[in-house]
Design a protein around this nucleic acid. Sequence first.
DNA 1: TGTGTAAGCAAGTGACTACTTGCAGCGCCA
DNA 2: TGGCGCTGCAAGTAGTCACTTGCTTACACA
Lengths: 211, 211
Amino acid sequence: MRAVNTRDGILNAACGVFAQHGFRGSTTRRIADAAGVNEITIFRQFGSKEALIREAMQHLTQSANLAALPAVPVDPHRELSEWSESFIQHLRLRSSIIRKTMSEIEERPEMCECASYVPRQASNDLCDYLTALKKQGTIRVDFEPKTAAAMLMGAIFSDAMGRDMMPDVFPQPESAAAEKYAGLLLRALGVETESAHSTNNQSHLRKQFSH
Amino acid sequence: MRAVNTRDGILNAACGVFAQHGFRGSTTRRIADAAGVNEITIFRQFGSKEALIREAMQHLTQSANLAALPAVPVDPHRELSEWSESFIQHLRLRSSIIRKTMSEIEERPEMCECASYVPRQASNDLCDYLTALKKQGTIRVDFEPKTAAAMLMGAIFSDAMGRDMMPDVFPQPESAAAEKYAGLLLRALGVETESAHSTNNQSHLRKQFSH
DNA sequence: TGTGTAAGCAAGTGACTACTTGCAGCGCCA
DNA sequence: TGGCGCTGCAAGTAGTCACTTGCTTACACA
């Protein structure tokens, strides 16, 4: 677990402690302990707690890599389900730190740019995909890509943030939720899709062939 | 702004300070200043900071009253739009305190019950409504009420939480977002609905007649 | 008019916080 | 081999935190 570099070790520790305790709860002592480093090393390396946390956040966003959506839609149900699944997993892994960051942004607006980078990127990707789907003529009814994208991403985001707190409010099982949201959205857009019962199996079969 | 009762004044002040600064940032001094009260009065009234915050949270959830959905759906588009609008307004008014609470829950699980009361209630109401819609036969396609409810509530929740941070990711104008989400969901369920253009005007007309 | 109760003020306690100073050990490269 | 840079340890500073004590004021009710 110990990082090669002292600096990276402190950054990773800071991310972990921040995710658990937020800014005010991330004492330099706690971070130093988590990094297995003397508290003073933090000040020598980063100058202040604030600078450390700022750098740790940037360090974190750079490490994110989202699944890509194809520029030309081929199998909307499969592509959208897989993208949703990768996105929800990304959010679930980071749910603690996302919750903390969202609550700190009002007090530290400089974190906003850093925090909104990933969702902005995801929203753009998804909007582009839905627009391509629309232009392709696959979709019968008219719709706003931005509204549709906000709806799917919103459902995924809320699931990732709220399921630990209220598991009975969200669809079961957890592992199928992303696909269900994606399927529901496609139905709203009028894209033909398999019946709810066969969906799961067929998509699993497809995954085997596609990879 | 000053409350009749000293106790209620402190509780209101505690809610405001907590919404701004979270638990750790809600110092007893800050709360006392906000309430226009001596710091000691807080300890004499509530015993400890923790007890005060707990009581303030309960005080807050009790003051919530959501719009009701009819037991028998008549005009799904109007009813769901109005419910969504009232729900999103409820969340927007409380966005700061919701963000803070969500980030504190991991450290203070006792807040969970209090925090999840309103969304649980909303989810149940919405599920019941969608189930009634399904049984009524208005809906052609098969769907899971819980998934559909989670999707609509998720979209509304994310909008209410994220729009300040990234306004360009969500549908414009802000005032029409809830209705757009509701309309999109109904299309996913196969409910016949007006075209996107006439929707807004018609619903406004209806509101005049219905009240 | 007397009494109890809620509130205020001044002052202070011990614990914790971010951050500093001074000094010593250790490995790396010239 | 010698110096340099990174790290650790001990100790300490000034500020803030939750919470306490002792005493005083003001109002309600009898």
